[in-house]
Write a protein that binds this DNA or RNA. Structure first.
Lengths: 234, 234
DNA sequence: GCTCTGTCAAGAGCAGTGCTCTCGAAACAG
DNA sequence: CTGTTTCGAGAGCACTGCTCTTGACAGAGC
């Protein structure tokens, strides 16, 4: 069974799988995740609803596929932003990362909601989603690791205490040994700050205050760069 | 038509309305917002599903009622936390506020998701929700206003620029004239940080890193107090 | 007291959902 | 050319939100 030369069945199957996901993504953007209807997808594709079950054993499996694809798209975008930013300008890399995440979120609000919004009740994300889901966090870490020896030790650093100190130490040991615990803890703060802002913008909580949020976002990203101790550009 | 002495009809109607919301809230906690079923509520209450439409003209109206109730419950909790904290300890008031919001969110995760999670597609929040929704933000502002003349002017304050400077100025003029624009901008950062953390905790994005999140949350709340320039306790 | 009117719950029914099963046709492997 | 696997279609089940009609009942005016 060669992998390059595939049988007609395999080709058709792969193509239809892609078309189903594409149409599902289209409906996601139009109706939202919870209104994603297998029957509507089938109708739009001109096939019987029951035929879809040959490709995705359940609606949840289809959702999982969309989630994994979305995490990968976002992760790829973030990694690309970091990779193409000036290598010697830590702050520019940080900015590029944050703005790329926001840009993807604004361009794909419903997919963002699928990832970072209310979890679907009764739906447990399978293990396959863990790796794609952590790509953005790892991109943040990679920026900080690249800047590790240039990060200014925070003067008035609040000491880490108790369980949190242990959690940060364990996390740092696993993922970024060259970063001090304080920097790791600040990365956590910046991480939740980033997605907190984006979520508030997308879910309409900034309406009437700082909407459009470009200025607020840019300002806060820079403030977080200060907070993280990233030096100014070369 | 007196308001104190009500007719039997009015009494029954009011009581049933309350029972419907209560049962709906119970199902919300069990199944999540999108699985809230009018028929199931009716079944549990021993009445016909069609009868529910005498009380709430649509499922969305019922959702709106739940949303308003939830915003008010959360707002009340936050306001109460601020009011009962030591009046002369700004930092304690800030801590009490943040922890009360998190405590409510953890105790009512599905109602929190209803407020701050993915918005229901095709559902536009009516104007009645705006006032209850802003109670927490106003509680934050009230803490800062109470501390206005004790807030240490941030040394390395990043200057506000362009549209964002105008937005912050307008917001400050409307809601907190005694606060400097820098403090208002920092309040916005702390606001999104607070809900970003809580959202990540509730929606499972902290699993495997800093979960349980008590330490992370407490640490970040204190860090934000530093960031806001709140002085230490009396 | 007794109608008359407006309110109420119930039932049937519509269009839609996720999902399962069976059946016949097509594509593959030998 | 056979036997097996794969696939799409259709019927059907138990649901959903919602509408419309029907019949019962409470309250107000006479």
């Amino acid at each position: 069974m060669p992998t390059v030369i595939r049988t007609a069945r395999e080709r058709a199957r792969e193509e239809l799988t892609r078309e189903i996901k594409q149409e599902a993504r289209r409906q996601l953007a139009e109706e939202g995740a919870q209104r994603l209807s297998l029957r509507a997808v089938a109708r739009e594709l001109g096939m019987a609803s029951s035929a879809l079950y040959r490709y995705f054993p359940s609606r949840d499996e289809l959702l999982t596929a969309l989630i994994v694809d979305a995490y990968n798209a976002l992760g790829e975008r973030a990694e690309h932003a970091v990779a193409t930013a000036p290598a010697n300008d830590d702050r520019a890399r940080w900015r590029a990362l944050c703005h790329s995440v926001r840009a993807w979120a604004v361009a794909h609000p419903h997919e963002y909601a699928l990832l970072y919004g209310t979890p679907v009740p009764g739906y447990a994300a399978p293990a396959d989603t863990v790796a794609p889901a952590s790509r953005v966090s790892l991109a943040i870490i990679s920026v900080l690791r690249g800047a590790a020896d240039r990060i200014e030790p925070a003067a008035a650093a609040r000491p880490l205490e108790g369980v949190f100190a242990e959690q940060v130490a364990a996390l740092g040991a696993e993922v970024a040994p060259e970063l001090t615990p304080v920097v790791v803890s600040r990365a956590l703060v910046a991480w939740t700050q980033l997605f907190g802002m984006i979520g508030f913008e997308l879910f309409g909580h900034l309406v009437g205050t700082v909407e459009p949020a470009d200025g607020f976002f840019a300002h806060t990203v820079d403030t977080m760069a200060d907070f993280l101790g990233l030096p100014d550009g070369s």
